[in-house]
Design a protein around this nucleic acid. Structure first.
Lengths: 340, 340
DNA sequence: CTGAAAGCGCTTACAG
DNA sequence: CTGAAAGCGCTTACAG
């Protein structure tokens, strides 16, 4: 109820010093004598004083808030990433203002504008695309942007992804070595660089071995679309004996179609490989062979990139790709003598 | 690069009006003539002016930011809730500053203090407990708190939960009607009101039918603890033929132990019932019978409560309980002629 | 090291 | 309806 705002002035009065002195005591790196600091801290303690972050931000131009734009929370990869991100940022004294976006340019633009209005110190865009107009607005406002788990054609922004092409290639080699004859791909949404890169890496490696996929369908990162894709493929004359699915989230749906509807045994009758290695992939119910995206390292790189951009604004954008291993589990046949 | 800050003064100069006039044009409800508004908007447009939210907040004392404290993101219930919450709040012009907390008083206190420092307009605490000291700090700072999916003994704060006791009772009646003879419970963490209420409701209903559980173990809301609890129970002389698990997240682990390790057929050899009805529960891989927590309605109630607290501060706390149905799926035997 | 003063970019009585 | 002025609670040159 009380809500007695206590200001630096109140503390100054009680301590018998100037208001600027109080401010200095609460400003790391400012020059104050030990005696002064002691007096002020005592007074502050007694009054329950805490500096007003808003007033401080208004002057310094720093809010210590990082805006996060996310589109998919159903895919377990993102909650996990948010958790890591939150902790990593918190360790640096930053916090996350979170915005959900639809995957349309309009929605993203709307959300970004609000982030700019809130004067966030930086924006992390997870799995959403940036238009050029938006990029301009951000750099105009002096707000650095880092793309997480999504690349971009131009080189306006830094981005952090896993090595998606290499990952896709790894899967192709793994499946070929496993002796699979009819290999198919349910791709990540074609509108995403991540989905395209995984697909391209996969198909290139297939071709390098003189192989063609029996089918490639866009799964849109959605369970239902992926399940339908699986059904379509299995209805083919030459139905696949191995399917690489563009992410784990879709792969689970595919596995369910194969197991429950087609009564197939995964890893024996047919192989399924995913991408991400979300916690669910390791659950006994799925035991999904998949390419790991090293969330920890991706987040570290993201935070590091962001902080260095905040420090020296005119940082040249960097595209960081982090390599992840293929994790062998039960959903796909393991080639003899295969070691990653 | 540019980062030319354009202020209301710049707009005023260009439009040939006073700075206060500009402010009024951007303040909903302030009195300005149509002519004035037109001039100002044109100038603002030309300069790309946007009001500085920080300066505004410093004066109004409102940030339009709601702090969210969350502990478990691995449990799918929370990402789903965050998504709903974010959209509901956004519709009202509010945004979420998110903080991860460990489930210790110290961690929660630390996080809450930061939220207070950021001058959030309100705090939603999801699944974390509030100490009295903390409650005092918040009300002292004039920041309303709503507990989400967690109750509290005192009546300092409002809370929104599902009707946990009733839900637990529902499960008991369902299992008894299903003819189960040896009923057990893997409970939610005893430190949580939610876990306790579900357990109490469950056990009371059992006793009302002159039944005793064959075992009750605290699963701590953790997969591993729950799995161990299941193993312990199944090693009992009178091992259960039905287990009520305190939430879906644990139930999935229990199902895996039962299916994969014990080779039991769920719904036939043994019944499992969860609580939450997270999206995963409906996946064919689990097909889990469970009590639904109506996230939509819980979130609506949370947002509504929060907003009304923000408006008229000295709102009496209310404890809202929202009833949810038992969703019948394949993991538990369905009593003959049973209709919810 | 310390204090008086200016100023961050707004909102909001107060007059007119 | 409009403008001049005070003030939100701080930080930060500027003197001393």
């Amino acid at each position: 109820m009380a809500a007695e705002k206590v200001t630096s002035q109140d503390v100054a009065t009680l301590a018998g010093v100037s208001q600027s002195a109080v401010s200095r005591v609460f400003t790391p790196g400012a020059s104050v004598s030990e005696a002064m600091a002691k007096k002020v801290r005592a007074a502050a303690e007694k009054l329950g004083y805490r500096p007003n972050v808003l007033a401080r931000s208004l002057i310094t131009g720093r809010t210590r808030i990082i805006g996060l734009v996310v589109a998919y929370l159903e895919n377990q990869f993102y909650p996990v990433a948010i958790e890591h991100l939150s902790r990593a940022l918190e360790a640096q004294g930053y916090h996350i203002l979170i915005f959900m976006a639809e995957n349309s340019d309009a929605s993203v633009a709307n959300v970004m504008q609000k982030l700019i209005d809130y004067q966030v110190d930086g924006i992390i865009a997870a799995s959403v695309a940036m238009t050029n107009d938006l990029s301009d607005r951000c750099s105009n406002a002096g707000i650095p942007v880092v793309l997480f788990n999504r690349g971009q054609d131009g080189d306006q922004h830094s981005s952090v992804t896993s090595a998606n092409r290499a990952g896709g290639a790894k899967v192709a080699e793994f499946l070929i070595a496993g002796g699979h004859q009819r290999i198919a791909h349910i791709a990540g949404w074609r509108g995403s660089s991540t989905g395209r890169d995984r697909k391209d890496g996969f198909l290139d490696a297939l071709r390098a071995a003189d192989r063609e996929p029996v089918a490639v369908i866009d799964g849109m990162y959605q369970r239902e679309a992926a399940a339908d894709a699986a059904r379509q493929m299995m209805a083919l004359d030459s139905s696949p004996d191995a399917i690489f699915v563009g992410n784990d989230h879709m792969a689970f749906a595919v596995m369910e179609v194969l197991r429950q509807e087609m009564r197939l045994k995964l890893g024996e009758d047919i192989s399924v490989v995913g991408y991400d290695d979300v916690p669910l992939a390791a659950w006994p119910s799925f035991d999904l062979t998949t390419v790991r995206q090293p969330v920890n390292r991706m987040i570290s790189a993201t935070v590091e990139t962001m902080l260095s951009k905040i420090e020296h604004k005119n940082h040249t954008p960097r595209k960081i790709e982090i390599d992840g291993p293929l994790i062998q589990r039960g959903s796909a046949r393991i080639p003899e003598g295969w070691t990653e």
